[in-house]
């Protein structure tokens, strides 16, 4: 099984440690991982801003980069969601279809494809899980509070096996953080308010570390936490799963 590692643009530039943790984690799990050069972006920021047509080039680059792999794995639910959902603007060649079908968010790949939940990590902290909307409602990584049915959560399955980690229950377990890509700047006031409210929920729930499978939400939350000097650390779930503290 050949896996192509997809490192979203903002992680590549601003959060290399998340990319590193993802790669190390996959290697630890015995996966044959490759990192294709020349990755740019999945096109999501353009699509969400209404410039989907201008994103075709980026989408095409993505397909070119990853068409040779059995699976494409990335540490960002919303980018993967974009590939799966919005690459319908490309001509649906067998290659495009294959890439869309085989793209997986990291946690889902570990649980569903590798069939593992305990990966021997330890992380002795109180952790709050931020479920990104695109991961949760888009990729269906877990059950949503609005939908009636059994509870499940891919990220929780993984975190529950981490030694010493205490997963803290939140008041609103899957409310949006307010990032929303360009929403974060074009609707600045609401975006900030939503983020502040999410952070307050974690603080009220005694959380020490906020984590999630989508670093764009985390970047937004971290920006607020740092500005307001709040006693919370923000880490991508790959970093926690790759820890042996």
């Amino acid at each position: 099984m050949k896996v192509g590692l997809f490192i979203p643009c903002y992680i590549n530039q601003l959060y290399p440690q998340v990319g590193i943790a993802t790669l190390e984690l996959l290697e630890k799990l015995g996966v044959d991982v490759y990192y294709p050069q020349g990755q740019t972006c999945c096109g999501q920021p353009l699509g969400n801003s209404g410039y989907e047509d201008d994103s075709k080039g980026a989408c095409q680059v993505f397909v070119e980069n990853f068409k040779a792999y059995d699976y494409i794995v990335g540490p960002s639910g919303s980018c993967i969601y974009h590939v799966k959902h919005h690459f319908d603007i490309l001509e649906q060649t067998p290659e495009v279809k294959r890439v869309r079908n085989n793209a997986y968010e990291l946690c889902e790949f570990i649980v569903k494809i590798l069939g593992k939940t305990d990966i021997g990590a330890s992380f002795p902290y109180k952790v709050g899980l931020h479920k990104s909307c695109h991961g949760l409602r888009g990729l269906k990584l877990g059950s949503c509070s609005e939908v009636m049915g059994e509870h499940f959560s891919t990220e929780e399955d993984l975190l529950n096996e981490v030694k010493g980690l205490q997963l803290m229950p939140l008041n609103r377990k899957d409310e949006c953080c307010g990032f929303g890509g360009t929403f974060s700047v074009f609707e600045e006031a609401i975006s900030v308010k939503m983020g502040k409210d999410r952070i307050k929920d974690h603080l009220d729930s005694d959380v020490q570390v906020i984590t999630g499978a989508d670093h764009s939400c985390l970047m937004h939350l971290e920006g607020l936490i740092n500005r307001n000097k709040q006693p919370l650390k923000v880490m991508h779930i790959a970093e926690i799963l790759n820890s042996s503290l």
Partner: peptide, 10 residues
């Protein structure tokens, strides 16, 4: 965003 579209395709 237009520029981004071009840059991201190259």
């Amino acid at each position: 965003l237009k520029v981004a579209g071009v840059v991201l395709s190259k």
